[in-house]
């Protein structure tokens, strides 16, 4: 099970939950599981080619998955995954 930290703009998809659990062995799989449990995730995170949108940052532990294996980045039991958007306003 990975622990996924959800940013404020996506918490309406998770019914307000800040952290959700998902059973997946890679980040790509994790997004598919999130989409299944909370429809709307995939379109927000991935572009039409199935790649992570340029302005979305996904961290596994402290590392940005762009510097790991992108969507193929493996997830260990209990790994923390954070979805971090840009900063709004002022």
């Amino acid at each position: 099970m990975a622990q996924v930290r959800i940013p404020t703009p996506l918490r309406r998809l998770t019914h307000g939950q800040e952290v959700v659990q998902a059973d997946a062995s890679t980040v790509g799989e994790l997004i598919a599981v999130l989409e299944q449990n909370y429809p709307g995730f995939k379109d927000r995170l991935l572009d039409e080619k199935g790649q992570v949108r340029r302005f979305i940052n996904i961290f596994v532990g402290e590392e940005d998955i762009r510097y790991l294996q992108a969507l193929d980045t493996p997830l260990q039991q209990g790994t923390e995954v954070s979805i971090v958007p840009a900063i709004a306003g002022g």
Binding site: P7, P9, L10, R12, R44, R53, R54, F55, I56, P85, A86, I87, A88, G89, G90
Partner: peptide, 10 residues
């Protein structure tokens, strides 16, 4: 959209 990449805009 609520989830966006335009830093500085709301």
């Amino acid at each position: 959209d609520a989830l966006h990449g335009l830093e500085g805009l709301k």
